[in-house]
Nucleic acid binder design. Structure first.
Lengths: 172, 172
DNA sequence: CCAAATTAGTTATACAGTATAACTGTAGCG
DNA sequence: CGCTACAGTTATACTGTATAACTAATTTGG
């Protein structure tokens, strides 16, 4: 058994804890706080928003025990079967060393298959298993429901498109 | 010596590593990848953008060894002197247990002062030290330069306002 | 052709961020 | 007074991420 597989087994089954949102804070009184530039700081507001979205994502996939990285990996393999491990990892900005455990997990759940390339035996080409293909369908339906909630919060598909357009400028 | 202070001492001085961006990926050839819905997935694009912004933030403050949380704490204390530890922590969405080490660090650098409240000796009220006030001025100048870079990437202050307006809807 | 360099994947390890439980000292209240 | 609640703290654990070192396979240059 590989180390990654071992880790997978001992992992707790609760991937995403319940929302740790604003606790019923004691006396209920809240200090009025001056947030200064934080209110309009791109990094801060972006971070808080991203946490809120991931929170919803986590609750959506709590039953499946699927983390954002797992979702992305399954999606990419589904649409690009045969990609090398390192290509998927780089596409998602995941270090190849950390990617091993992710693939171990998906392979252990019989969703993904590693196949040694015939032409280059160093390479592990990735494919979805039949179960993985089926899983991906349900996964995408669950994701779409999550995404629809986010779009609704934003105020519609146009607002979503505008948001994507803006944040992409920060990544380029 | 408290545990938090001990941790502070043994912490490495390199808070933010160099950008681990797209490595000179070997042969230079890149597989053409179908990202499917990931291209327009709110959570995914938001996450990537936030990482890019934090990367720039980290480089901006590498010399000062200031992390995003430290920045926010100093800023809030500057504009709300005398707030309780738990109030600052809650305002920033930081667990009070984890907030202890952050304040330990800032206090150890003589930027922040804990003062036991006269009326409630359980409470630690937070204030900037004179050095902290001075530090905050430089900090804000450094931050503004960072923020200006982000605004420029976005395409101007109007685009920034629009982005903030959109992401705030996700957090509410 | 062969030795050296490079590449893909893997393992081990370290650290930041975050979450929870349990403890101490203090305050409020019947 | 005795019970409950609260603020801060400590210890601990787990996820995500970063780096170095290793193995096996391939490519490259002389």
């Amino acid at each position: 058994m590989r180390y990654g597989e071992f880790l997978q087994l001992v992992q707790k089954h609760v991937i995403f804890a319940k929302p740790s949102g604003p606790k019923p804070s004691g006396n209920g009184r809240h200090a009025i706080i001056n947030y200064s530039v934080l209110s309009e700081a791109v990094g801060y507001r972006l971070r808080r928003a991203q946490l809120a979205v991931f929170q919803d994502f986590g609750e959506s996939f709590a039953a499946e025990g699927l983390r954002p990285a797992d979702f992305s990996v399954v999606l990419l393999i589904k649409h690009n079967p045969g990609l090398k491990q390192s290509e998927v990892a780089e596409a998602l900005g995941i270090q190849r060393a950390n990617f091993v455990a992710i693939v171990d997990g998906l392979e252990g759940r019989d969703l993904v298959e590693r196949r040694k390339s015939e032409t280059d035996r160093r390479v592990q080409a990735l494919y979805l298993t039949p179960l993985g293909e089926q899983f991906a369908e349900n996964m995408l339906a669950t994701w779409q429901a999550h995404e629809d909630r986010m779009i609704a919060k934003l105020g519609g598909p146009e607002a979503r498109d505008e948001l994507i357009r803006l944040v992409n400028r920060l990544t380029e």
